[in-house]
Every structure is written in C-alpha cells, then in structure tokens.
C-alpha cells in the first residue's frame, strides 16, 4: 500500500527583513512526512525549527518554495483557508502552554470545538474524553493559574487533541517542565500517536524529547543537516 505524504516541503526558504537586508532563517528545505509520524525538528536556537513549524502550521508563509500540508499549498492559502486548515486539521502545543487564563480547564479544552460549531453534547463527550487521556478530569473546574506546569501542558495537549487532528505541531513542549513531568507528557503524546494515529511534529532541542522521537531531523543554520529514522 502506498503511503501518502501528509507534509511535503519542496525547496522551501524563508527570509526575514533585517535592517536594510534580509536574514535567511530556512534555506531550500526538502522534507516529507507521512501519516502517524512521531518526528522532531532538532537543533540549537536560531536553526529555524520554529520557523519551519510555523510555516507547516500555516501561521507563516514561505518566501520561496512550497509546503504542502494535508494537500494544501501553504503559500497559496487565503487567510480564511489557512484558518480553516488550523481549525479542522491541526493541533498546536506551545512551550508556554498558551492556555486562555480566564477559562477553566474544561473551557480551554472545549474552545477548539466551539470554533467547529459542535453541539453541546458532542463537545462535552469530546472534552471529557480528551481530559481522560491526559488524566485531568479532577481538575476540570480549575483555572490555569491554579495548575502546575505539567498540568498546564497536559491541558494544552488535551486542547490540541480534542478535535482529533491529523497533525499536532509541538514547539518546545517540555522546555518549561521538569524531568518527571516531561516524561508523563511525552508518554501521553506517544500513546495518543499510537492509539489515534495522529502525527506529531516537534520543534525541540530538549534531549528528553529527542529520546522519544522516531524520526529526528537536525537543522543547522536553516538547512537540514541530518534526517534519521530511529528504531526503538
């Protein structure tokens, strides 16, 4: 059976204007990802990991080349179409969790479903299921300031996973967590990847994360230095 690419990146470059000139963050990147991958963009700060992740997440667009994500060419997407892609197909996990501070855990996880206009019953079932995956049902009424870092990131995972996206993009998800919490978070994501066949793409330089990756793409100075599949 032929495996179709979820993400195809062809000769992608990204430049940012700096002063009178330009800074090249990504240079002629070529990568392909298939469904169900648990892969990571690895490299030091400034290597272009987050920039590439943002382009794949349609939050940014390439300067040259193309990124085709779930069949959509990112550079050709309208604002509305890119919002639709993020709303329906993608999940995001951020380093600093980015939870909505005035919402409860339940409301934070429910948020992506509100955007999808799901019925209240469907939303409730999906939220409870997602909170069950991350073990946070006892905390549904808590607000982000009342949660620990590990709990906050688990809420963020539940929020990213609640709509069962095809692809989850995680930018340094363990950077603010201790070893124990990082372990739990990664185990949770690995389990969701296995059970739901959701693809995970990380941008990280955290060794704890790198140990879990099944595919490690090393970036250096905006270029792919190494692309290796790790057998576990």
């Amino acid at each position: 059976m032929e495996t179709q690419n979820q993400i195809s990146i062809n000769k992608l470059s990204k430049h940012f204007p700096v002063g009178g000139g330009k800074f090249t963050a990504l240079k002629e990147i070529n990568l392909n990802f298939v469904e169900g991958e648990f892969s990571g963009l690895v490299g030091p700060s400034g290597s272009g990991k987050t920039t590439l992740l943002n382009i794949i997440g349609s939050l940014d667009s390439p300067s040259e080349g193309e990124a085709i994500v779930l069949g959509r060419a990112i550079s050709k997407l309208s604002t509305k179409a890119s919002a639709k892609l993020r709303k329906e197909e993608l999940g995001f996990i951020f380093q600093s969790y980015n939870l909505l501070p005035v919402y409860t855990v339940y409301e934070n996880v429910e948020f992506p479903l509100l955007l999808l206009n799901m019925s209240a019953t469907e939303r409730k079932n999906a939220v409870m299921e997602a909170l069950d995956w991350v073990g946070l049902i006892p905390k549904i009424k808590s607000k982000p300031p009342q949660l620990s870092g590990g709990e906050s990131q688990r809420v963020a995972i539940a929020r990213a996973m609640v709509k069962k996206p095809k692809l989850v993009l995680a930018d340094e998800p363990t950077a603010n967590l201790d070893a124990e919490n990082s372990f739990h978070i990664l185990e949770t994501m690995l389990k969701l990847n296995k059970d739901l066949k959701t693809s995970f793409l990380f941008a990280t330089h955290d060794e704890k994360v790198i140990k879990y990756l099944k595919r490690k793409i090393s970036l250096a100075d905006g270029m792919v230095a190494k692309d290796e599949y790790i057998s576990k």
């Binding site: 919002a83 993608l90 980015n98 939870l99 955007l115």
Partner: peptide, 12 residues
C-alpha cells in the same frame, strides 16, 4: 499570546 492562540486554533 491569547490573540496568537486564537489564531493558531483556527480563528481569522
């Protein structure tokens, strides 16, 4: 951050 999160989650 909240505004960025709204956009990341699919709002225009």
């Amino acid at each position: 951050k909240e505004i960025g999160t709204y956009i990341a989650m699919g709002m225009t």
